[in-house]
Design a binder for these strands. Structure first.
Lengths: 252, 252
DNA sequence: AATAGCCTATTGTCAGACAAATGATTTTCG
DNA sequence: CGAAAATCATTTGTCTGACAATAGGCTATT
């Protein structure tokens, strides 16, 4: 009996591979070549086929460039956070995937009573309690984003927001795997910085911000989190693949 | 005399596979299962390993969900897309779909020589001609957007931009159905209005604009149009559905 | 010195095999 | 008979080894 796999943990091999490969890519200076695929697969203990799936995934994220006959090269990320909008992930998860060092500043947690607008969003009655979690995200000693989550206490109570809280409501819900999430409906816009936000982000008032409003839904169809996010444009590039719609069949 | 923009017949196998697979996914109703990987790879004429690289790429975009022992399923990515970003359409088509009356002002058409940045985008040589089409969009007697298309002359020549031209490069290409389009890679950002654009949109300088940069690709994988679009935020709200990444393996 | 051809390293693709997970089916047994 | 256990078929996950295609460097020839 040939057994080349002594022990396989329950964790997803592919995810572990993605982490390892992500680390290697991040540790490699932009423009440099990675080791060859046979070498890497040997180093990482996976087959070349599996490694190539991960490579393809990173290529799709614009982190590497593969050239047949030459090698695989690390692209210059230019300290930009560039990500697809199709999949929702926390900025902390995104940053660690990109090898950027982020830290959180100015965590503010309040419980407030729902005003009319908020009550309507959550389909709650007026003055129901809503937990508001606001934070500033720093990258390389500069504030780059301001994020506000409004979440109903049934999903995240104030007691849960202890030392272990990283700041990301999304990550917390995902980690405990309850409730099961389905999708987020996000609206993209632009806005001048209000005085309050400008101060937090060390900007001038009315400087330009990219704004996203997101409604997070569970598989039951309940809306459990309404967030407003403000990004300094220079640091963030959000991508989306737009497919070609059904053409007008009338014209042939 | 050597224009290397002509595509070799031997197009990227992976790109072709992505197109085929994309069509299959789009034709499959959400929630339905795709054929098994061995079947699909046989249908599409590629090996299972290559197919799986493409699958991984689509999984990363949140289009499908794969479950070991069960199959691969098409996710429901458009619960409600009204002005969603998922599908590319011209602003003229969008407006007519919404019953808005739009008109075009300030159509400007130039031919310019590609500078370094533009040449790199199109993979052309320096100073190759590029046609630039800029226009202002008006809705209800107010300018609301400024759109710039840069397109290679092989796709749209200056002679084609006659009276019948509505202003939309996208619509023109779609109407004549050549070349066949595949998708657009769009980046969303925010920017203050430059003096030139502010004047065209009747704004103050440094007023906030939503900016989109889009690269339009044909089914051959060639990039044929690079566009910059500036929208006044109050008039546009772009939505996108973001699915939850599969953080938890094999847990139905 | 310039050029054409060869060599080698690297990614691209393939075929086949087995492992692991899942849901349906059949068997076992109280 | 009914429920639990075992079995089976299907499907994705991963591995192995091989060959093709490409690019860049090296060498021999002119």
């Amino acid at each position: 009996m040939k057994n080349n796999n002594q022990k396989k943990e329950k964790v997803n091999l592919f995810q572990k591979l993605q982490n390892d490969l992500s680390r290697i890519i991040n540790e490699t200076p932009p423009g440099e070549r990675l080791k060859s695929e046979p070498e890497l697969s040997a180093d990482l203990g996976v087959s070349r086929a599996t490694l190539r799936e991960a490579m393809r995934s990173f290529e799709g994220q614009g982190l590497i460039r593969r050239r047949q006959g030459v090698g695989t090269f690390v692209l210059d990320r230019n300290q930009n956070i560039e990500t697809g909008l199709e999949v929702l992930e926390s900025i902390e998860t995104l940053a660690s995937r990109l090898g950027l060092e982020v830290r959180m500043g100015f965590l503010e947690v309040n419980q407030l009573a729902a005003d009319e607008a908020m009550a309507a969003k959550f389909d709650l009655s007026l003055k129901s309690p809503v937990n508001r979690i606001a934070r500033v995200i720093w990258i390389s000693e500069r504030p780059v984003a301001y994020l506000i989550d409004n979440v109903i206490p049934q999903v995240i109570s104030l007691e849960e927001l202890d030392d272990t809280f990283t700041g990301s409501v999304l990550d917390k819900i995902l980690r405990r795997n309850s409730p099961e999430l389905s999708f987020s409906k996000t609206t993209v816009s632009a806005t001048p910085a209000s005085p309050a936000i400008a101060k937090k982000l060390q900007l001038q008032r009315d400087d330009v911000l990219l704004k996203m409003e997101a409604y997070l839904y569970t598989k039951d169809g309940a809306m459990i989190d309404y967030s407003e996010s403000y990004f300094i444009p220079g640091f963030f590039r959000f991508q989306v693949i737009r497919s070609i719609g059904n053409q007008n069949p009338g014209n042939g």
